[in-house]
Amino acid sequence: MPSLPIHLRQLEAESIGILREVAAAFERPVMLYSIGKDSSAMLHLARKAFFPGRLPFPLLHVDTTWKFRDMITFRDRTARDLGLDLIVHVNQEGVRAGVDPFRSGSAVHTRVMKTEALKQALEQHRFDAAIGGARRDEERSRAKERVFSLRSASHGWEPRRQRPEPWRLFNTRLAPGESMRVFPLSNWTERDVWEYVRAEGIPVVPLYFAAERPVVERDGMLLVVDDDRFPLRPGEVPRMRRVRFRTLGCYPLTGAIESDATTLDAIVAEMRAATTSERQGRLIDADETASMERKKREGYF
């Protein structure tokens, strides 16, 4: 018999059902792979869903060129070890325009290198369904997201056009040009993900574990100086501090937390006692209360 706690077994079965539905209902699905813990869990669920077969869709990583080096190493090794069909997309226009999170600011960087880049990749490959690892517990406007979320031909999210999903009878039909965003982890919490990662022994990026890293404290956030592109302000000197990350993104926009958690057990224990949400470490949400909803209307995942 499986050793998973019953609530994780229920979540796992629900996610597997959603992933199979995507593969069966769409012509060109793709799984968004962001290299973080949610993506790792989702990839693991997908491999289970289609066992003993291979994944019936490719993975897509939208690379902003500002990810932690450890993330890229982990991504490439995972793809190689598991024999995945991985597409890496960079918004070359953004690169040519010199968009970067320090000089352009987080809002412009996120819009050009993430939101625009994602739209480019989806259109270039004509994907009609994109599977993402977003969870309803992450943020308030996410709490009302559907599992199958309809996007217009211009990738916009219209709250009023979202379809009711009684009995998990998902309406997967699309008009020409429309596409679907699908969230198999909708009903998971951050803690569920960590407990599942631990129970299933799923590999995650080492940045989640505490280690001595060169840190600069800026605007109340602990930023890790991951490479020499980090422009230090006068007086800033990176100091080695014992930190880890609760969420991973572009390194200049992702705050670390001080922690001694070097094992999954320690992370889960820390999680259970946590008093702040994981999104606190993300600069892109801090702008204003409804920023996520606005970004989604513009086509953010």
């Binding site: 706690p5 019953i6 609530h7 077994r9 229920q10 979540l11 407990e195 937390i257 001080e258 922690s259 001694d260 958690a261 320690a266 224990a269 820390e270 259970r272 006692a273 946590a274 008093t275 702040t276």
Partner: peptide, 22 residues
Amino acid sequence: MTAADQDAPARGAIEAAGRGQL
């Protein structure tokens, strides 16, 4: 801030046990 040294909250802290989801 590390949370390891805090008192574990009375609820929400312990493994959701045998009953599964409601």
